[in-house]
Nucleic acid binder design. Structure first.
Lengths: 125, 125
DNA sequence: ATTGACTCCGTACCTATCTACGGAGTTTAC
DNA sequence: GTAAACTCCGTAGATAGGTACGGAGTCAAT
């Protein structure tokens, strides 16, 4: 049993972040004894780690909430995962196209001898 | 010479967006005749197109402002381009790592026979 | 001359994910 | 026993890049 501050330190989260997740419905408010302080048991740690990991995979907090509420329905979870996968793949493709364009631009800059004129600026005009 | 509405339509931007760019210092307020309406000449069109293109390449509005003020200093422009390039490359790398993880997860979901248990959820726990 | 479309300005609102603040009550350490 | 550290709550602020609104003035067409 620990208060919110210890929990936050343990997970390297801010106290405010935990309260925020509670407000957003990702975790529920634990029972509070007479003094009004939140008191958590160990199960909250797993829940918050789940949230952090899913967030790191690119799920939004709303999606994390969905994932948690789907609890075990593998087909639904897979579908959300596939959806996220295709989003990631199209982001990668977008960025790779950008990469090519910017590479070309900086290359042309490097080969440029005319100091009064920048090919990047020109190409954007 | 055109008013803000025509300009916005021509470039497929919102009127508010143009005013916003003005407030942010990306373009300057044109001279206004007695009636107080902004009146633009053709040079603004190029400036706004420059902004749109640079934005599409992933430059933030602040960076676009920088680019415009560097006007022609090729070394500076190249350096900003290279910086953006490396940002893009690291984003790509991040997303590719994510892609692998999520692929693995959805695959294990697909091969899962135990309806009461989802390997994605499990792996996040 | 009237109606509808356009413009002005400042400000509030939007998404997402927190982060900070203020003032009051509580617990802990010395 | 008192001072520091912790907690409570609700609300405001931050970020980026706009979008929307309200009331008032102006312009174009009929």
């Amino acid at each position: 049993m620990k208060t919110i501050g210890k929990l936050a330190k343990e997970l390297d989260l801010g106290v405010e972040t935990i309260r925020f997740y509670e407000r957003e419905g990702l975790i529920k408010q634990p029972q509070k004894p007479q003094n009004g302080y939140r008191v958590y048991d160990d199960s909250i740690t797993k829940q918050l780690q789940f949230i952090c990991k899913a967030k790191a995979l690119g799920f939004t907090l709303k999606e994390v909430a969905s994932l948690m509420s789907m609890d075990g329905d593998c087909a639904k979870v897979e579908s959300l995962g596939l959806q996220k996968l295709s989003l990631i793949q199209s982001k990668i493709a977008d960025l790779q196209r950008l990469e090519v364009v910017i590479k070309e631009m900086t290359n042309s800059c490097r080969n440029n001898n005319d100091q009064s004129h920048c090919p990047i600026i020109d190409s954007l005009k």
